[in-house]
Simulated scan of single mutants.
Amino acid sequence: MEFSPFNPIVKLCLQGMELEAQNNFEKALNTYTQAWNEASNDFEKYLSSYYIAKLQEDKHQKLSWLESTLSFALKANSPAVNTALPSLYQTLAKCYEASGELDKAKEYRTHSETHRCSPSDNGPFYHGTRADLSIGDFLVAGGKSNYQSNLKMNHIYFTALVDGAGLAAALAKGDGVERVFMVEPTGNFENDPNLTDKKFPGNPTRSYRSEAPLKIIGEIKEWNRRSPEEIQKFREKLDNNKGEIIN
């Protein structure tokens, strides 16, 4: 399954996060539990159980929900969850240590280090824009941010999710046509730190950035386009986000 902010379970998790920010933890837990009950695949179960685990006060309940989260993450076996494994194993290690199960804590810390590596995503990769570009062109760092117009970006950003690139194209500045290009990194790349381990565990949006150029190798004509109303609501949420961009 591919991550989407428009997925009903993801939406419920986002609602739960907003309730947490308002210190309404009981209602947040109820919302996460609703997400868990309505989840229909391993990824959705993994995501909802992760947030339920965060709000558990009883250490045994917390450990149980974290183990459930890990179980569904391993079942999903997807780039959308694999980036969360290092921090998930580390959290479990701390819980086992607090429970006095030191051998288990050591085992999970070893797993955490084993999974801590550079992105292993093989793509294909996409970049959404309104710029008039062609196959064979190169996308380079140094452009203005779509979210802070006075900020010159030190990296070029891309994703392995075609719908994510389509959303980026819809949100891009300018009056040009929304376009999604298939791109090929020409150098090393890293998880986008503006998204990774922020609201969601790991890098479920499979968003990356590189200082090296991206070569355009194709163009995608079909993706899941959102309605103007959905795009406007998403843009308003971004406008209300005052967080600093990691550049």
Rank of each mutant, 00 (worst) to 15 (best):
F200R: 00
L12N: 01
A160S: 15
S149G: 05
V177A: 11
E18V: 08
S48K: 01
E113H: 06
N240V: 03
R209P: 09
K215C: 05
A131Q: 13
E190P: 03
T129I: 08
T83A: 11
T129D: 12
L151A: 01
Q232Y: 03
P86N: 05
L85F: 00
G143E: 12
P185H: 00
I9R: 00
G16P: 04
P185S: 01
A98W: 05
L63Y: 08
E219L: 09
S145K: 11
I220D: 08
P193C: 10
M17T: 07
K62H: 02
N24Q: 13
N191E: 03
N30M: 13
E211P: 03
L74Q: 12
L151H: 04
E236C: 00
N7T: 06
L214T: 05
L29M: 13
R209I: 09
I216D: 06
F43L: 01
Q15K: 15
F6P: 06
I9P: 00
E2C: 02
L55E: 09
K215P: 12
C13I: 15
G187Q: 06
E97S: 14
P119D: 04
E67G: 04
F181Y: 15
P8V: 09
Y89W: 11
E236R: 03
N191D: 12
K59F: 09
N224S: 13
G176N: 10
D192Q: 05
S40G: 05
T196H: 05
K59I: 15
F200C: 02
Y208F: 15
D103W: 02
K106V: 04
S87K: 14
F25L: 14
L88I: 10
G123P: 06
E18I: 05
N191F: 02
G243F: 03
V81S: 05
E107F: 13
F138W: 02
K173Y: 11
L47R: 11
T159R: 07
